[in-house]
Design a protein around this nucleic acid. Structure first.
Length: 210
DNA sequence: ACATTAAGTGATT
DNA sequence: AATCACTTAATGT
């Protein structure tokens, strides 16, 4: 754990802060597809990803899901930052996309470290900003109904977090993630294949130009 | 060989 | 873009 922390966060945080994280944080390993936070659940810790990836989803009243974004190593969940300020409940669901190792830091430390460590303050503000921009991007894509672009971006994201250009997934799963129907995904994927962006197989999609 | 599940397609709204 | 209805292809038992 100490080595992992040093490797991914050593260049970001000063030594004292790294030590505090080790003292107060708890190391957790999560297997693929395990949910680590559900909607309405009280947030009591914020995650620092060491490796692996987590997908953050939103759900409507019908139980349909929509992917908001992925978090990877070096990332933290921006939603946690807003929620823990007022001890609010989670507005999103978080599911492990791959096997993941992370450190959970109690939310009480958040405010304390904000004043104490400049590097922590920068990290939090920066990641909050990054996520915000990503959100705006996502809204643009949805608002302008550019399904094909949305889909391709999703595939790239998924390939990135899995460190693999061949995704092991079905059209149906993608449709669920993007809150659309399987038929639409199949057609768009077919179009992408024609444009030599991807290759299609059963239960797998290979991304070509990376 | 048969059942099940994933993917492809045309037509319609 | 979504839905329906149907076909085809791959895979498991």
């Amino acid at each position: 754990m100490e080595k992992d922390l040093q490797e991914h966060y050593g260049y970001l945080f000063e030594k004292e802060l790294l030590q505090e994280i080790l003292n107060v944080g708890s190391y957790i390993e999560i297997l693929e597809d395990v949910m680590l936070m559900d909607i309405g659940q009280q947030i009591k810790a914020m995650p620092l990803l060491l490796n692996g990836a987590i997908k953050v989803l939103r759900e409507d009243k019908n139980g349909d899901e929509l992917i908001l974004y992925f978090i990877e190593q070096g990332d933290t969940c921006a939603m946690t930052i807003t929620c823990c300020m007022g001890q609010k409940k989670s507005e999103v669901r978080a599911v492990a996309e791959t096997d993941t190792k992370l450190i959970m830091v109690p939310v009480e430390k958040m405010g304390e470290w904000m004043g104490k460590y400049k590097s922590w303050q920068n990290y939090i503000l920066q990641s909050y900003h990054d996520r915000m921009m990503e959100m705006l991007d996502a809204i643009d894509n949805i608002a302008f109904l550019r399904m094909d672009e949305r889909l391709f971006k999703h595939l790239l994201d998924k390939a990135k977090v899995n460190h693999n250009d061949t995704l092991q997934t079905t059209h149906q799963e993608i449709a669920n993630d993007m809150h659309t129907s399987r038929v639409v995904i199949s057609r768009l994927l077919k179009a992408l294949e024609k444009n030599n962006k991807i290759e299609l197989y059963r239960n797998a999609i290979k991304i070509l130009d990376l």
